[in-house]
Simulated assay, not measured.
Amino acid sequence: MEDPAVGPLDLAARVDEALRVQAVAFGLTEEEILVRRHIVLRHLATPGARAYGAVTAAGRLVGFGYGLPCDRAQWWASVVEPCLRKNGVDDWLDDSFTVTELHVLPDYQGRGIGRALITTLTDQVRQPRSLLSAIDTESPARVLYRKLGYRDLARQVRFPSAPRPYAVMGAVLPLRRRERPAAGPR
Rank of each mutant, 00 (worst) to 15 (best):
M1A: 11
E2I: 07
E2P: 13
D3V: 06
A5L: 14
V6C: 04
L9R: 09
L9N: 03
D10P: 04
D10K: 01
L11N: 11
L11E: 10
A13F: 05
A13D: 10
A13S: 09
R14G: 02
D16G: 13
L19S: 03
V21C: 08
V21T: 14
V21Y: 02
A23G: 11
A25K: 02
E30W: 04
E32G: 00
V35L: 10
V35W: 05
V35F: 10
R36E: 14
H38W: 09
H43R: 02
L44N: 03
A49T: 15
A49R: 03
R50S: 01
Y52P: 01
G53A: 01
A54N: 05
V55C: 05
A58S: 13
A58N: 01
A58Q: 09
G59T: 11
R60Q: 13
R60F: 07
V62M: 02
V62S: 10
F64G: 05
F64R: 04
F64V: 03
F64I: 03
Y66M: 05
Y66L: 05
W75K: 12
S78M: 13
V79L: 00
V80C: 07
V80E: 08
V80G: 11
E81V: 01
P82L: 00
C83Y: 15
N87Y: 14
G88I: 12
G88N: 08
G88E: 09
V89G: 14
D90I: 12
D90C: 14
W92R: 14
L93S: 13
F97W: 12
T100N: 14
T100E: 15
E101H: 10
L102S: 09
H103T: 11
L105E: 02
P106R: 06
D107N: 14
D107Y: 04
Y108Q: 12
G110T: 12
G112W: 00
I113Y: 02
R115F: 03
R115C: 01
R115E: 13
L117M: 09
T119R: 07
T120W: 00
L121Q: 00
L121T: 00
T122F: 03
D123R: 15
D123I: 01
D123M: 04
Q127C: 04
P128I: 09
P128K: 13
L132C: 14
L132F: 10
L132K: 07
D136F: 03
S139V: 07
A141P: 06
A141F: 03
A141L: 04
A141K: 01
R142H: 00
K147W: 05
K147G: 14
Y150F: 15
L153P: 01
L153S: 01
R155F: 00
V157R: 08
R158C: 02
R158K: 11
R158M: 04
F159A: 04
S161Q: 08
S161D: 08
P163S: 13
Y166M: 12
Y166C: 05
V168C: 14
G170S: 10
L173A: 14
L175C: 15
R177L: 13
R178D: 15
A183Y: 03
P185F: 02
R186T: 09
